[in-house]
């Protein structure tokens, strides 16, 4: 097994774990932010409509 084989194995392991960790966080917390985005844009729209 040469050096580059080990380098790519380690890099792949790190990349996979990092990907899985951040993806899980983003999936769990992103839903609330998506709802909030729609709410904020809707709120601005209502505010504009309500202005004299």
């Amino acid at each position: 097994m040469d050096l580059w084989e080990i380098v790519w194995m380690v890099a792949f392991g790190f990349g996979t774990l990092g990907f899985a960790f951040i993806a899980t966080n983003v999936i769990v917390k992103g839903f609330a932010e998506a709802r909030s985005l729609l709410h904020e844009l809707g709120g601005e729209e209502e505010k504009q409509e309500g202005q004299p």
Binding site: I22, N25, V26, K29, G30, E33, S36, L37, E40, L41
Partner: peptide, 10 residues
């Protein structure tokens, strides 16, 4: 509307 937060941004 520049309302994007961290998780949605990622």
């Amino acid at each position: 509307g520049r309302h994007i937060r961290y998780n949605l941004g990622v």
